[in-house]
Design a protein around this nucleic acid. Sequence first.
DNA 1: GAAGATTGAGTCATCAATCTTC
DNA 2: GAAGATTGATGACTCAATCTTC
Lengths: 159, 159
Amino acid sequence: VPEPEEPEWLSTHEQVVWVALAGVLIKLPGVLDAQLQRDSGLNLFEYFVLSNLSQRENHTVRMSDLASLVNGSLSRLSNVAKRLEQRGWMRREPAPDNGRYTNAVLTDSGWKLVQAAAPGHVRAVRHFVISALTAEQACAVGDACTSIMQRIEPGSTWP
Amino acid sequence: VPEPEEPEWLSTHEQVVWVALAGVLIKLPGVLDAQLQRDSGLNLFEYFVLSNLSQRENHTVRMSDLASLVNGSLSRLSNVAKRLEQRGWMRREPAPDNGRYTNAVLTDSGWKLVQAAAPGHVRAVRHFVISALTAEQACAVGDACTSIMQRIEPGSTWP
DNA sequence: GAAGATTGAGTCATCAATCTTC
DNA sequence: GAAGATTGATGACTCAATCTTC
């Protein structure tokens, strides 16, 4: 029978790296979620959405562009946008020039929310991530994550 | 009025690092989930649970120990254990010596499942993570993640 | 009473199917 | 027909409340 090929197993060293990274993958989002939820009633992804909107010209971005800016699927963003819209923090409107596009727009109250939420969130990111790293580690982590993201991006070939 | 203290905002360099890491936090679990789900009907956390069980003596671990081994809450593990038990991949039984403890035990069919799932999962981890890193980056990422985990662990003081 | 463990309610993410506009 | 966007059903995670054993 055609047994599946044995993969190249992880070395002890590689296992250590992966276990450490996996721990961060599982726990860090929850910690940051908790701070945002407690202080601002937002989860991490919702914060990314509003924060990204607040940094764009006219506080406006096309939905599909916003989705890739926050590394989420368009479907996920659409569901989140509905919630944020219901709470009055953003609104959606057809693009004036092309009705097939939808623009996401930050409202005034959304803008105020982001401004109020940012300090606490930045403090948490600094506490749990940035200040835990040496300058060299920070550099390496940045490069490493950029490299990982490239493999994930569409276009990379994977069974 | 007592304005909330301005935090130390992130430098441009720090922002780059955080944005890259945040991208990995959001996307990498989904990619690994997808491979496992497709090939073995497991999500990443379920795989961690079964894989960890398979590496313990007698394929048996106390629930609370298993929870910290996989970086999850006991509550989350308990919910997952129920699913895995229903599918026949593990079982739970009171510890013989102390009825207050519960032992998680890998079944034979669970053992076979892990063995069948491991090659594909390892290939995915190697493809998306390990092989994306230089030796120095791998080292730095391991140390960095270990350091981040220490800040998250209970005991660290945080508002 | 406290540690270990479980439960269920509420909330969110994912995926396939659908709708709209060009 | 295809790109952009939305919807809803299903399954999973979280949190607080509860139960059990010592």
